[in-house]
Design a protein around this nucleic acid. Structure first.
Lengths: 331, 331
DNA sequence: CGAATATGGCAACAATTAAAGATGTAGCAA
DNA sequence: TTGCTACATCTTTAATTGTTGCCATATTCG
């Protein structure tokens, strides 16, 4: 493989001259520049990215860290990140954090292989995150809060989203409203539940523990939780599923038990996944501004990279998508 | 940021000794090793990835190149790649090829930032692909054929898949079978159509050009193509959509025109996307072994990296998923 | 004293870049 | 006209980036 040395030799100039010429420095005469470029072409010279990055101590790439590349991650969010990154002429790579401290993500972070990162992966420990941030790599966290001077956050207002979903059910006349939760440890879940509680309180409704069923954000978990609810004999008026995947699972359970949605019971989800529009009935749900989250996160990375002083916290709000899984309660 | 120099100084040893110690060489005494490790810890030393890669001329990472990171790409396929890559203790990064020659993907390929790559991105030109391959980076192409000694291929047998789909319709009594195609330039599309033609021929059915409608692999395109077909007044007995996305679009069009599937007309798709199971009626379709494609592709990269001589071409076959969108024709 | 083991010195990897050097040209005085 | 300086332009030398690994050397022990 040809190096810049070979190019310089062929062009009959010094290595540095070749470097200047190839990098469009204006201290090189047009003639020399042409000679060098011709040489580079005939040798099929391509610069070695590492050597270049090493000297410049800058990679021009930022990482999007996902817990699992093959996961059902938000394509809208990625689009947001991608758009902003390429507008800034940076490269974007996606890597996974499977394997914790041994993962690709952590390696890229600690070994300074990227200039900045956006993290959507709860399996990267807090310490690791802080450690990476402290050493100068701008980090934007999307899925949790971390009190550190070098870490920035973009989040969707989950409390407000949970509140809105619950309020929507209440204003449709439902008073017995169940909540099928995500994993207890999930921050998203906790906040959505908080919103649910706040709404019940504000409308002077009671919080029954029987209406709080544990789920895990998976379709299967939603199915099981719903079966459990059905087995309790007395059904609620409506159910707020902490995410759409679980709601889809719930739909299966209801179908098996000949319970009609929304005639017998209203349900609302959270996320507005692609499927929501296609299930029967189409799912009313809370939509998160995913594109905006991604775009904002990427923007922040660049602002930090430019040394601008910015807030550490950004909160975006949700939107309610009305479809057909909720109907007013007939008394 | 601490470098190995600082570590060596603090530990009171030479740089090389520190390097050996940190890389678990057995030529270093346990005592020294410990000293070095302690120093590294107090200084919070993390090796610089580039410098290391530069010296070793090896990156230990392979790239999965996708035309668009935010696209609806095959999560099963990625899972296959991911599993094999991590089993080989390599890192995997995903990058996009938006922007052609200026894209991140091309940059990583030409600048030797990765040891190998799996490409699922038609917008990387053939020349570029060959160029990268020639200079020693193992390349596995998933979406097209390229006659080059350094390029390897894994493909799903699209002719067989197209044949199987068509044959299934024929054996259910349908004789007037339409084909709604993908983009004319798509290799996948061409081969599926080839399979369709072969099946018709083998069963002595005529190929009517009126039954060949142009689509583009998108939901919207499927919708439009189907409307066109409906507008022709005379409907076929069955339709073979070159992919599921278009079939979903078709379903919309039929619903709008009160044409019942599968009572009035049978349809079959291709891909078995997640949605297929959920649309009404659930879509009978051809499933591609995506996980296997990804896993095999990754395997090949490592075999090539190990200098093994392997075939340049691998073909996997499809599977027919029977659901409810095809029913026998009543004469 | 020779062998084995542990450690250190130094070049190499491929690029960038500051600073010094070379070359040529113009201006001006003798 | 000649000779010299000054300056601008272009090119080169050499240092630098962080790490690795070959080779040489120092130390220790039987």
């Amino acid at each position: 493989m040809a190096t810049i040395k070979d190019v310089a030799k062929l062009a009959g100039v010094a290595i540095s001259t070749a470097s200047y010429a190839l990098n469009n420095s204006d201290r090189i005469s047009a003639a020399t520049k042409q000679k060098v470029e011709a040489a580079a072409k005939t040798l099929n010279y391509k610069k070695n990215g590492f050597a270049s990055d090493l000297k410049r101590t800058k990679t021009n790439t930022i990482a999007l860290i996902l817990s699992d590349l093959s996961g059902p991650f938000y394509s809208e969010l990625i689009k947001g990140v991608q758009d902003v990154t390429s507008a800034n002429n940076y490269d974007l790579i996606a890597c996974n954090s499977i394997g914790g401290a041994q993962s690709t993500a952590v390696k890229f972070l600690t070994e300074k292989r990227v200039d900045g990162a956006i993290i959507l992966a709860h399996n990267i420990t807090d310490e690791l995150t802080i450690e990476s941030a402290t050493y100068g790599t701008p980090l934007v966290l999307l899925d949790r809060y971390l009190d550190d001077n070098h870490v920035y956050h973009v989040e969707v207002d989950n409390i407000q989203g949970g509140y809105r979903a619950t309020e929507y059910l209440i204003t449709h006349g439902h008073t017995e409203i169940a909540y099928i939760s995500g994993p207890a440890a999930s921050n998203d879940n906790i906040l959505r539940y908080q919103g649910y509680q706040n709404a019940l309180m504000d409308y002077h409704l009671h919080l029954h523990s029987r209406w709080h069923i544990q789920g895990d954000f998976t379709r299967e978990g939603g199915y099981r939780a719903t079966k459990l609810l059905i087995a309790q004999k007395k059904l609620p008026h409506a159910i707020f599923y902490a995410n759409d995947e679980m709601a889809v699972g719930g739909l299966h359970a209801f179908k098996e038990n000949n319970i009609r949605i929304p005639e017998d019971l209203s349900i609302i989800g959270y996320d507005d996944i692609q499927l929501s529009e296609y299930v029967q009935p189409p799912l009313t749900t809370i939509k998160q501004p995913k594109y905006e989250v991604g775009a904002l996160a990427a923007h922040l990375v660049f602002q930090i990279l430019n040394g601008e002083k910015i807030d550490h916290h950004y909160k975006l709000s949700t939107e309610l998508i009305e479809r057909a899984s909720v109907q007013p309660r007939k008394s």
